[in-house]
Structure formats: structure tokens, C-alpha cells
């Protein structure tokens, strides 16, 4: 908060701390959706207080912290695109209606176009059609896509894309399968 004021950002009429107190009072835990989820972390706080336009210096610093949170696996990051397609289709995971411990999905089609066969895709995020065909699939590109899915905020602090690995929604194996869906030349995304 002090940082924000120092940078000349105007706080909202009701500040984030007040809202958090209201959420703690007026929400209840249900299933796996526990109350710790309404406690904002630094990224959520800064993005709320800056209306998703964080000061550049602060954003850079926090993105670097987020990048450090990503445990990149050793070896190849390319899994099986066929599994990846199923994970991209699946919109479950982390909700109070989902079975705790059951494998979650990535909800990718909720927000992105991926395989051309799937006509029911959302537009909150950019189209990823032909992603690997245009961007290549070098080890650096694999690392970027793995990292982006694990923690989207490491590359764009106030991204509307969830931190799917960091939040525990997806496992490292699942993320590798999604990397393949985006980058494998035989994936329908790149046909």
C-alpha cells in the first residue's frame, strides 16, 4: 500500500483490505474451496489496487519473484498432445463442486481457440491456433509455454489467465501434455 501511494496511485473508495474483511465475514468454506483463498497475495493486491495497471518497476520486480516460483522439471518438457487436448477441454478443478484430489483441467478452451476442430472456444485470451507452427518448438519456447501455464503472472503480472500450476490446479505432467498440444508439430493445433 505504501509503495502504491508513493507511486501516486489513488486508492479506491473502499480499499482492498476492507473488501478482504467483508469476504472473510460473508463467505464460508465449502468442499475444497477454503477460506484462505480470500486472503490476497502480493500479486492480487497490487493488481487490485492499481486496477490491473501496475507501475512498470514494481511489475518487473514481482514478475521476477513469480518466475522463481516455477519448478521447471528436468529433461524434455513435451508430453503427449492427445492427453493435452483432453486437459484443455476439461473446465473442472478447484471449485467447491469438484471432488478434492481428482485431476483438474486447464479450462483452456474457456478462453482460447486451440484445435481447429473445436468450434466452442472462448475469447478472453488470444487465439492459440497454429501456436507452435508460428513460434517454433525450441527448448526456450517449451520453457516459456511451460512457465506461462504454470504461472502466467511471471510474464504479465496482472494477466487474467489463472496460475494453473502455482494454484495446484494442474500437475507438472499435465502441463507437459499441454506444452505438446501447443508445440508438437503433430498436434491438431499446428496442422
Amino acid at each position: 500500500m505504501k509503495v502504491l501511494l508513493a507511486l501516486g496511485l489513488i486508492p479506491l473508495a473502499v480499499c482492498a483490505q476492507d473488501v478482504q474483511k467483508v469476504l472473510q465475514r460473508d463467505f464460508q468454506p465449502r468442499g475444497q474451496a477454503t477460506m484462505d483463498r480470500v486472503v490476497q497475495d502480493g500479486v492480487q493486491r497490487v493488481c487490485t489496487e492499481s486496477n490491473d495497471r501496475p507501475p512498470a518497476e514494481l511489475a518487473k520486480q514481482l514478475e521476477a519473484d513469480q518466475l522463481k516460483s516455477i519448478p521447471f522439471p528436468q529433461g524434455s518438457l513435451m508430453g503427449d498432445w492427445k492427453n493435452g487436448e483432453r486437459i484443455a477441454q476439461n473446465g473442472r478443478g478447484g471449485q467447491w463442486t469438484d471432488a478434492p484430489g481428482a485431476a483438474g483441467g486447464g479450462s483452456c478452451y474457456n478462453c482460447h481457440q486451440l484445435s481447429p476442430q473445436e468450434a466452442s472456444f472462448g475469447t478472453l485470451g488470444p487465439s492459440l491456433l497454429r501456436f507452435g507452427a508460428t513460434r517454433g518448438n525450441s527448448p526456450d519456447m517449451q520453457r516459456y509455454v511451460y512457465g506461462k501455464i504454470y504461472n502466467a503472472k511471471a510474464y504479465n503480472l496482472c494477466s487474467q489467465m489463472p496460475r494453473l500450476g502455482y494454484s495446484g490446479t494442474l500437475t507438472p505432467e499435465q502441463i507437459k501434455d499441454l506444452v505438446a498440444l501447443l508445440l508438437d508439430p503433430s498436434s491438431p493445433v499446428n496442422k
Binding site: 479506491l12 473508495a13 473502499v14 480499499c15 482492498a16 476492507d18 473488501v19 478482504q20 467483508v22 469476504l23 474451496a33 483463498r37 480470500v38 486472503v39 490476497q40 500479486v43 492480487q44 493488481c47 487490485t48 486496477n51 478447484g94 478472453l124 503472472k153 487474467q160 489463472p162 496460475r163 494454484s167 495446484g168 490446479t169
Partner: peptide, 22 residues
């Protein structure tokens, strides 16, 4: 009204979302 407005733009939860995310 003011509380509702602040809630609309408040990012939290497992997926860092506010109402305005969608």
C-alpha cells in the same frame, strides 16, 4: 454501492479473479 463496486474489481480466490476478469 461502493462496496459492490470494489468487490466487482477485487482480485482474489484460487484463480486470481475479479468479476471484471470475465
Amino acid at each position: 454501492f461502493e462496496l459492490g463496486k470494489a468487490m466487482f474489481f477485487h482480485r482474489a480466490g484460487g484463480w486470481d479473479m475479479s468479476c471484471a476478469s470475465c
